[in-house]
Amino acid sequence: MHELSIMQSALHQALREARLAGAARVHEIRLRIGVLSGVVPDALQFAFEAITPGTAAEGALLTIEEVPARFWCAACRREFVSENFYAECPDCGVPSGELRAGRELELSSMEVDHV
């Protein structure tokens, strides 16, 4: 259950940014979470609801965009999305050594009061 500490880090960063912007309220926090990041979005939601009460983000919306695993096939010179996390190119079968997306653990943006 490392989602709690990851959510705490994200919330900490978000609250700091809100303070820097002079905003009293956070309305929405948006995360991008890669399917190969090892983090479960549902557990982040659970953690978010547990740790936001009493903060400027109380009652805020948490929106999580799941980023699929996207590999680069050097042989075909194109990217492919792997649903099952297999690294082999679906066209030529050559395994890819280059994951281009899917490991994101990113606080992408947020909605705060307009100051």
């Binding site: 880090s9 978000a14 947020m110 307009h114």
Partner: peptide
């Protein structure tokens, strides 16, 4: 809603 602003962040959560 018109009182809100978007902060574009793109922070790595595990940056530390």
């Amino acid at each position: 809603a018109e009182e809100r602003q978007t902060l574009d962040l793109r922070h790595a959560i595990l940056e530390k």
